[in-house]
Computed example of a mutant assay.
Amino acid sequence: MTGWPKFLFFTLIVRPLVLVVLGLNIRHRERLPGAGPSIVVANHNSHLDTLVLMSLFPLGQLHRLRPVAAADYFMRNPLLAWFATRVIGIIPIRRNNQNNHQDPLAPVHAALERGDIVIIFPEGTRGEPERMQQFKSGIIHLAKAHATAPITPVFLHGLGKALPRGEGLLVPFFCDVFVGPPLHWTGDRHQLMQQLTQQMERLAAEKGDAAWD
């Protein structure tokens, strides 16, 4: 069972925020993974992205949801580190890993081996609102090492305008979430990246947008 701080935060704050203030529209919600190990891949424009994605799952699954996030940002002071790890449940990853003998994705591998649902933003950082950047190769390493774990693409729209990068004030803005069918590792890294790109383009097209910058 998930910890009380996390349960109360998502029940009393996140869910009302997402449902009432943002007016979230979700398409193909049934495609979200019902259990782990699994990988959810999404574009990244705002700190709201993680909270919105986690709010789509039943409260009983909160303890299994593990978003991957940058250690240099979320672990920079004790209070933020406590909130990020104990309430949100992030897996902190060092983006500029100086130790060549240590796999920076080791904590993510461990989470998948425990049967968790990992949320990852392969762009690596928040970009400009509603402009997607090319995915980095970390998703390939995870898919290859956990070949049985489904990879569910999710396209988020509007969150970069509701809470843009560098802004601290939430602007009510109608937001959309489009969930794609799960993909699986087939042994070909180029094929998987192509499939992810095509899925994101299809999901963006449902909104009438172009996915890639």
Rank of each mutant, 00 (worst) to 15 (best):
N96A: 14
P104A: 14
F7M: 10
T2A: 15
A111L: 05
F74P: 00
L163I: 08
P104G: 14
G124I: 06
R131K: 13
V20M: 10
G36N: 08
F9N: 07
Q194I: 01
F121R: 07
F135T: 05
E201K: 03
G138L: 12
W212D: 03
F57I: 09
Q134S: 03
L156M: 11
V179Q: 13
L159C: 09
V118W: 08
M193S: 08
M54D: 04
L22Q: 01
D188V: 01
N99S: 12
I119T: 02
I90D: 00
P58Y: 04
G34W: 07
P107K: 10
G166C: 11
I120Y: 07
F74R: 00
I88T: 05
F74D: 00
V154N: 11
G34Y: 12
A147C: 09
F7K: 12
L53P: 03
R86Y: 00
A71Q: 02
M75H: 05
I93P: 00
F121D: 05
K6A: 14
R94S: 11
W185F: 13
A205C: 09
P58T: 03
M132T: 15
R27G: 01
N97C: 13
I39F: 04
L80D: 01
P122C: 13
L51P: 03
L192Y: 06
V41K: 15
K207Q: 15
C175K: 07
A69L: 01
T2W: 02
L196E: 10
A84M: 11
G3K: 06
H101V: 08
L32V: 06
V179N: 11
E206R: 04
N25Q: 15
K144M: 11
G166A: 12
V154Y: 11
L62W: 03
P153R: 07
K136G: 12
F7T: 13
R29P: 02
L80N: 00
I151E: 10
